[in-house]
Design a protein around this nucleic acid. Sequence first.
RNA 1: GCCCCAUUCGUCUAGUGGCCUAGGACGCCGCCCUCUCAAGGCGGAAACAGGAGUUCGAGUCUCCUAUGGGGUACCA
Length: 498
Amino acid sequence: MSDKPVRTRFAPSPTGPMHIGNLRQAVFGWLYAKHCGGQFILRIEDTDQKRFVEGSLDYIIGALRWLGLEYDEGPDVGGPYAPYIQSERLKLYQDSVQWLLDNDKAYKCFCTSERLDRVNKEKQARKEPPGYDRHCRTLTADEVAAKEAEGLPYVVRMKMPLEGTTKGHDIILGDVEFPNNTLQDAVILKSDGFPTYHLAHVVDDHYMEITHTTRGQEWLPSFPLHINIWNAFGWEMPQHAHLPLILNPNGQGKLSKRKESFDQSGQRVLIKVSEYIEAGYLSDATFNFLANIGWNFGDDKEIFTVEEAIERFDLKDVNPANAAFPVEKLDWLNGLYIREKAPEALAELLVPVVAEAGLNADPELVGKVAPVAQTRIKTLNEFIGLAGFFFEDWSKFQAPPADMLIQKKMDAAGTKRCLEASITVLEASESFEHNDLYATFKDLAQELDVKNGQLFGTLRVALTGQTISTPTFETMEILGKDESIRRLELALGQFADI
RNA sequence: GCCCCAUUCGUCUAGUGGCCUAGGACGCCGCCCUCUCAAGGCGGAAACAGGAGUUCGAGUCUCCUAUGGGGUACCA
């Protein structure tokens, strides 16, 4: 092992919106680099032209920035090992492949896809494992020259060992080994001149001086291929960590953006990072949540800051087992982070949410409402459902229907009486501070011989038009005397005919 | 089919041979508080996949089976 500075990378493909499971892979790589005082690199692996999706780079960068995973080098920030986009590094891969060819570590394969299909079908018919039959591996130099002279397209395949085992070591999994007779002569350079992932990532990791790789366990089966590529070049291999996968909440299959899944309560599981942002999840809560899957802080501590996580994190402590996505825990965690925010800070986060909902996001009003909603929302967006009425046009407030105003074990006459008495009390009220209001109305309930809940419930509905809302007297205080009375009178109007 | 990885409460996890009568958290249930909904407080149910070994002693080590997951592309 060397004493070179630790360098990790996150190397997504630009195939569309960023996946939440993908973001967690980035968290672990980033955390390890930070823990070691090293560097974190963003590299774009776009060697498959067909899967390229316009705008992907923005999604990737946006997601990383949102979560606070700043990278030291990358396509938009540059760095000493630029470029950081694989399609801009083709020469390097082609030269590397040429070296392997020259040194008998790889060979050109002229087989057509038709022949490949046929070979596979025949193998299957004989109940043999599918795979390339290494037909071109034994071509003589003359034969190769002849085919090239014909202008036949070719791919380059890795010349894998035929016997023995390939042994590897993984930081999380420990020692792993694979029988070589089950390995394939994988394609490393495609006929379009682009390398495959297998070749490109090895070359890049080497030249970018990556010391520790992190990637999902779905890559484990190709680990022996990569080991053989590293060995063929004679390069010192970085340490590898195959991270556990995030499975659907029911544990069936890995979390995928291609097929939807649902949690226990029937809610669709959010997959794209942008969906989490739009739904009003906080980045620090999301970070905490993601870091807690497959890794834990220790000391029975589940709530921690980014700094604390950096301090403690180590790849070797990552749990090797795949994990069902514990979505419901994010709601709890997010609610917790919301509650712990200073009210002003929360209000600041809420202003854009209110505006986004098409409401009047007056910062002063949001500042008043935020504290009374704080313990009642798990995501920023829930603020709208609970307290959105504050930000509607007050002059357009409609009186709720009578049956909504009438509380349990009450009738229209009784409700009317409550409203009338409440208006009288409010008009006479000197203080509009919610504690005073509470005391006043508690007395009124007694006078009227109704339960607190009956009187307060009617007031709540009259004031908010909702049965679930911010607390009644806090609401009254924010609405102010005139508006409160006006709304009660509107409600009273629903009982005009009795 | 073949190869690889994994397996502790419903879920995320602690646990690296005696400290385990298995700890924490979410969720769930109950009680308290209470103007709704929350939050908060208190309490509860709930797990070492199964079988053989190794050992004085196994959740912890080995093997087998089962189950789950991943891979098996000129995709990453």
